[in-house]
Amino acid sequence: METQQVTLRKMAPAEYHAAIEHREAEAARVLSTFMPEELARDRVRRGTAKFLPDGPDTAGHHLVMAENGSGEVVGNAWIGPDPGQASGTADSAWLYDINVFEPFRRRGYGSAILAAAEKLAAREGKTALALDVVGSNEAAIAMYRHGGYEVSSMSMRKDL
């Protein structure tokens, strides 16, 4: 597979709204396997409001579009402070979301966006980039492992 390169740029307002709508729908879909759908949608919306109180202008958060060398928008990402570390003391950034648009999937763009997100965090003095991934998302897990990510904690569940 060819090694892709991307450039990150700030989302325009319409891109931000589309990205948040997509992220919330996907997160609610995953959560609705564990709780009623309406509760899942509400929980996801509250999370967005909590972490992005000023939308795309929330301090410390980067909501970015990824463009390939031809200028095509291939995906997006949301990078911000690690929610598990105290404000102002965090040496770790958090990848809240990464998305490769359908026509560009399975072509190396996920890894390219991830690498660009890592560079963005490093430029801000962060020494690590952490994230959560759904356990059933084998393609994403493989991409993260290939990129050098390791499991740092794990939650498990069994429906009774």
Rank of each mutant, 00 (worst) to 15 (best):
F34M: 15
M156L: 13
G60E: 05
G69Q: 00
G80Q: 05
E24L: 11
E138D: 15
A25E: 10
D159C: 07
R157S: 11
A25C: 11
G135S: 11
W78Q: 08
S136D: 15
R29T: 10
N99S: 10
E26A: 14
A116I: 05
S70Y: 00
T127L: 13
G71S: 06
L129H: 03
M65I: 03
A142H: 14
M35I: 05
A28R: 11
E118D: 09
L160I: 08
G55F: 02
H17M: 09
K10M: 08
V44S: 10
L129N: 07
Y16M: 11
E38I: 03
A117G: 07
S87H: 12
P36S: 07
E38F: 03
A116E: 12
F51S: 04
R107E: 04
G55K: 09
A116G: 04
E118P: 05
R41W: 02
E150W: 09
A19S: 12
R23N: 15
Y109W: 10
E24D: 15
A115W: 04
K10V: 14
A112D: 05
G108R: 01
A139F: 03
M65S: 04
E15M: 10
A14P: 00
R123P: 02
V73L: 05
A40T: 08
L95Q: 09
E150S: 14
H62A: 02
H17Q: 14
H17K: 15
A122F: 03
G80F: 00
L131W: 07
I141N: 02
R107F: 06
I79F: 01
L39Y: 04
I141Q: 10
K10N: 13
L95S: 01
A140N: 09
G147V: 07
E102P: 00
D57A: 15
M65L: 06
A27I: 14
E38W: 00
A66S: 01
L31W: 06
R45K: 11
T7K: 10
D132C: 07
M154W: 08
A117D: 01
A115Y: 01
D82P: 08
S155G: 13
F104W: 10
V44D: 05
P53K: 09
M35S: 10
A139L: 07
D132E: 15
D97E: 15
A116L: 13
G135W: 04
R105P: 05
V74P: 00
P81L: 12
A116P: 03
R46D: 08
Y149K: 11
R105H: 03
L63G: 02
E24R: 15
A18Q: 14
A93V: 12
S87T: 12
M35W: 11
H61M: 12
A86Q: 14
A115P: 12
R123K: 08
P83H: 05
A77D: 06
A142M: 06
T48V: 02
A27M: 14
L8S: 09
F34C: 02
L129W: 07
